[in-house]
Nucleic acid binder design. Structure first.
Length: 380
DNA sequence: CGCACCGGGTTCTGCCATTCAC
DNA sequence: GTGAATGGCAGAACCCGGTGCG
């Protein structure tokens, strides 16, 4: 719809005369929602969009088409609070552009009262230091803040997470990274906690509470996953790696926690690809198992990315055995690895003699190392 | 001092489906 | 039946530096 970007371009000018064309959408809406005659004549009113609201939203620069697609019911409400929402967010430091974007992506935001929003904001402020931090999250994910109208539930979630022994820093990271956690019903979060504790007990662990807390603080996404999904993932890990209870328990509360939120299909797929790839390069099954147990993050890497990284290392004169011993080099981007290999080749670096640890270090350290290698005093 | 080990930091929404409440 | 609330899903890395040891 050409009218929308046009209005957007005029954003802030408030020339309502230019908005007339936006009403062109109304007849279309009426036609598509028109009910059979017998219903039209009954006590049910014909539900149509609120024209004043549409005009307001257009003036504000909201992508009405997007909003309609997202939550059509909101546009039909007789009373909404878009002005109040805008003033509220502006006071918190949000730009008009951000506000428009928030409403476009989560229209229900305009149904919240000022009191509700202020209360919710204060609850978030218990965890965030500044309003600006919250505005950033809202811009990123409006739904996380506005989807639930239950502030009491939010308060209970915060208390619940604190009661697990998570500190302020954990909470901050959690709300920053996976804000949806705080909009989950308390019961859903508790369900996941119980699930994790049960897993621990099933595997013969002695401290289920600690186990669950460890997993949550090591994998902030876990509480926005379903128990079904996490169980499938755990089962996949157990089967793929052929682990007994205690091995699995160790893996889960150790490095394995980081990949616990991946889908089991993705995991299976990546695992079989890794097996194929390494087997074709002459690796034993036992070596692969050892690799994955010590460095499960390798299963996080998609098949194409993993391929290109391994190929580029091999091309640079590094052996697959060296990669298996120091899999952390795979954490660096292909671009980064490629660049370093070129530089190292230029100075004649010998990977067989010196190992490949030099690839696994920060940029600063790498540069410092290269300077030394390049100086005439240090000929390799 | 140099190196290797190791853990930590950042990061993850936007949509659809289902259930709930009226 | 309707809109609101809630649950669930697919998607898929990269980088830094403290510290302890030789």
């Amino acid at each position: 719809m050409a009218a929308v970007p046009g209005v957007r371009a005029l954003f802030g000018l408030h020339r309502s005369g230019m908005l007339q064309r936006s009403f062109g959408v109304i007849p279309v809406q009426l036609a598509s929602t028109c009910l059979p005659m017998r219903l039209c004549s009954s006590k049910l009113p014909v539900i149509r969009e609120n024209e004043d609201l549409l005009q307001n939203l257009n003036l504000m620069g909201v992508d009405v088409r997007k909003a309609r697609q997202r939550q059509p019911g909101v546009l039909r409400k007789p009373f909404t609070n878009e002005q109040g929402l805008a003033r509220f967010l502006q006071r918190k430091g949000a730009s008009l552009k951000v506000i428009a974007s928030i409403i476009s992506r989560y229209p229900r935001a305009i149904t919240r009262s000022i009191e509700h929003m202020e209360q919710r904001w204060q609850l978030w402020r218990n965890i965030f230091q500044t309003d600006a931090e919250i505005v950033t999250i809202l811009d990123r994910s409006p739904e996380s803040f506005f989807r639930s109208s239950d502030n009491e539930n939010l308060q209970k979630n915060i208390s619940f997470l604190i009661s697990l022994g998570l500190n302020t820093k954990d909470l901050h990271r959690l709300l920053t990274t996976a804000p949806r956690t705080f909009s989950n019903s308390l019961e859903l979060n508790k369900q996941m906690l119980r699930f994790l504790e049960d897993i621990c007990a099933e595997l013969g662990g002695t401290n289920p509470e600690q186990f669950a807390k460890t997993i949550i603080s090591r994998n902030l996404y876990i509480l926005i996953r379903s128990t079904k999904r996490v169980r499938a993932t755990i089962n996949t890990l157990r089967t793929s790696l052929d682990l007994n209870d205690s091995e699995l328990l160790t893996l889960l509360q150790g490095p394995g926690s980081e990949i616990l939120d991946l889908s089991s299909e993705y995991l299976k797929n990546n695992f079989s690809h890794l097996e194929l790839k390494t087997a074709s390069l002459g690796c034993e099954k036992s070596e692969i198992k050892k690799l994955v147990i010590s460095y499960p993050m390798i299963l996080y890497i998609g098949t194409d990315t993993l391929n290109s990284k391994i190929d580029c290392l091999l091309k640079g004169g590094i052996t697959i055995k060296q990669i298996l011993e120091k899999p952390k080099v795979l954490e660096y981007s292909t671009q980064n690895i490629t660049g370093r290999l070129v530089e190292l080749k230029r100075v004649g670096y010998d990977f067989q003699k010196n190992g490949i640890n030099i690839l696994d270090c920060s940029r600063k350290r790498f540069v410092a190392k290269m300077e030394k290698l390049a100086s005439p005093a240090n000929s390799l």
